[in-house]
Amino acid sequence: MEKSPQKYSEQEKHLIFNQEFIPLIDSAYNFAFRLTLDEDDAKDLVQDTYLKVFRFIESFQKGTNAKAWLFRILKNNFINDFRKKVKEPNKTDYQEVENFYNSENADTDLNLTTDLRVEIIQGMIGDELVTALNSLAVDFRTVIILSDIEGFTYEEMSKILNIPIGTVRSRLHRARNILKEKLRTYAQQMGYKTDKPEHN
């Protein structure tokens, strides 16, 4: 159970805000951008989120994961206020996502290439990778972002998304499979062979 809000002086509030949350603003923007797929919406979402962070900062327990707490507020803010305003993708940081999927850790971190050969992923251009990720339903896109890009644990994701850990696991498994199939289709269109052995 979460503890009751603490009482901080104004000076303590500003100190916690500046030390714990200001350094995370770039990460918050990246998360907001991947949710909204729009630069202006992402900036608005981050600004509104940081206003809420400061307003409710007494609910933050010092010594806990500030990034997870911040992302939970941002995600809730997105659901409550911004989801209905999400626009079609028109601006994307292709290089950032391409670098992640082409990284040496992509196989172990994402488990995307366990039955889709590494060379298929590495041979694809960023546009197709990002299009596949962005085409996922926002709930599936979010778990991929939180787990495979931001590196949150299942427990942290459960708190951020306010869903049981079992739901996190099943949603992430389904999201990875959907993304894998989208990438497989792209790979086939590019002429790669994507046959894979049967597995359980």
Rank of each mutant, 00 (worst) to 15 (best):
L51V: 15
Y154S: 03
K75C: 07
N111M: 09
I178V: 15
T49E: 03
D115C: 11
F60K: 09
Q47V: 05
I120C: 14
Y8M: 09
A28V: 03
Y192T: 06
K7S: 09
F54S: 08
L116P: 06
K84Q: 13
N200G: 00
P197I: 11
R72E: 08
Y8N: 04
A66S: 15
E156R: 05
R169T: 07
N200I: 08
E150V: 02
G166E: 14
R169E: 09
S59Y: 13
N30W: 09
D195C: 10
A175I: 04
G151R: 07
Q122G: 08
R169Y: 04
W69M: 03
W69H: 06
F60D: 04
S158F: 03
E181C: 02
I121P: 01
L172C: 12
N105A: 06
G151H: 14
I163G: 02
D81R: 04
E58T: 15
E58P: 01
E39S: 13
F152D: 05
E198F: 10
N76K: 11
E96A: 05
T167L: 10
D44V: 10
D109H: 12
S170E: 11
L116C: 06
K67F: 06
E104P: 03
K85R: 15
D148V: 02
I73E: 00
K196Y: 07
P164E: 01
T153H: 01
L24F: 06
Q11Y: 04
T64A: 00
D41R: 09
P164N: 01
E96P: 00
N65P: 02
V168W: 05
F17H: 10
V168E: 08
N90C: 10
Q19S: 03
I25K: 15
I22R: 14
L45Y: 13
L110A: 05
A28I: 02
V46A: 12
D195K: 06
D40C: 05
D195Y: 07
I25P: 00
L133H: 02
L133P: 00
Q189S: 10
N111D: 14
V97L: 15
Q189M: 05
K159N: 11
D139Y: 05
V53A: 07
L15R: 13
I120P: 08
V86K: 15
E96I: 00
Y50A: 07
P89N: 07
L45K: 07
F31Y: 11
L74A: 09
I160D: 03
I73L: 13
M1C: 14
V53W: 05
R117L: 05
D109F: 04
N30D: 15
D38F: 10
K91D: 12
K75I: 06
I120A: 05
P164K: 02
V138M: 04
K7M: 13
A175M: 11
R72A: 04
K91F: 12
E128V: 02
L129E: 04
T64E: 10
N177W: 01
I57S: 10
I178K: 14
T114M: 09
K159C: 13
K159Q: 15
P89Y: 11
I125C: 04
I79C: 03
K180V: 07
D48C: 05
S158K: 01
E58K: 08
